[in-house]
Amino acid sequence: MNIAPSIRPFGKHGILISFPPEISQEVHREVLAWRDAVLHSFSEKIVDVVPAYHSLAVFVNDHVNVETFIALLKDLSVSETESAITNYCITIPVCYDETFGLDLKELSEAKKMTMEQIIQKHTAPTYQVYFLGFLPGFPYLGGLDPQLFHPRKPTARSQIDQGAVAIGGGQTGIYPMACPGGWNILGKTPLVMFDPKKAIPSLVTPGDYIKFRSISLKEFETIAAKVAKRSYNIEKEVYRD
């Protein structure tokens, strides 16, 4: 597929590249192909490239004229197959014990499923990381089983723990840091999703995939201790379609 996107100015130093408004792997592949092509061809002009579901924003240096740059973008040849960025599948260990899975019981009652069934359905898919937003390192994931879709809680909690794994509507995500929120909490990962001291602070990047793996409370403690000592080896492998 090759759709010609709309390319328009977005503020004084920004350009918005948009595809038809839909959430699909097909459209998102185009978004990432454009991200890769822009980064590859114009790295010296670029400050930030921010992908989302069906669009990406390109922010350029102060001295770059946006109108001139748009003309260059319209002549850019973008190929999906030439991605220079390696995508990984990263396994995220999650403890679904009720100690952390504060809403698991409520969800199991609402869905008329056992807690084990919910955990099974949550750990089965390979989720695609569409993009990061909302909080530093917060992944917007595609691939949640529609049987697990569940509305946000009527009243948001004043604090959701760092590492909480939750469902909000048709989405599932991992909280990289503590914050208020209304999503239904299923469990918690001992991994650090965002570490500002690392060269690449976010554990996952757009285009990566993740799998959740159910772990016991004891395993949670073991992994948390290794993470604290920076001796935990992240389970990740190169992702191939």
Binding site: V49, F194, P201
Partner: peptide
């Protein structure tokens, strides 16, 4: 702080 917006950093 520039260069980290794709990682969700304001």
């Amino acid at each position: 702080r520039f260069g980290y917006r794709s990682q969700g950093v304001p």
